[in-house]
C-alpha cells in the first residue's frame, strides 16, 4: 500500500491542482474492485490494472496511452 496517501487521494490531488488535462492515470492496485470513494473520479482514470500483473501488459498499455498525448 502507498504511505500517507492512497491512490484515490493522489488522483484527487491531481484533479485539485488542475493537472488532469496533462496527466493520464493508470491505476496499478491490489484491489480487484474500486470502492465507492472514487465515484466522480472515473473520467480521470484511464485504466485499472490489478495485482498480480504482467509487466509486459502494463508496458503495452502505457505505450498505447502515450500515443494519446
Amino acid at each position: 500500500m502507498m504511505p500517507n496517501m492512497d491512490g484515490w487521494d493522489t488522483i484527487r490531488e491531481i484533479v485539485a491542482r488542475g493537472y488532469t488535462e496533462r496527466v493520464m492515470v493508470v491505476m496499478l492496485t491490489a484491489k480487484d474492485t474500486p470502492d465507492e470513494k472514487m465515484d466522480g473520479l472515473q473520467e480521470f482514470v484511464f485504466d485499472y490494472i490489478t495485482k498480480p500483473f504482467y509487466p509486459d501488459e502494463l508496458i503495452e498499455r502505457v505505450m498505447k496511452y502515450l500515443t494519446y498525448i
Binding site: T20, E21, R22, M24, Q42, E43, F46, T67, Y68, I69
Partner: peptide, 14 residues
C-alpha cells in the same frame, strides 16, 4: 466515454 476533453481527439483517432 468518460474522459477528459484533452483526450477526445486522441480517442477519435485511435
Amino acid at each position: 466515454q468518460h474522459i477528459p476533453a484533452r483526450f477526445i481527439e486522441s480517442l477519435r483517432a485511435s
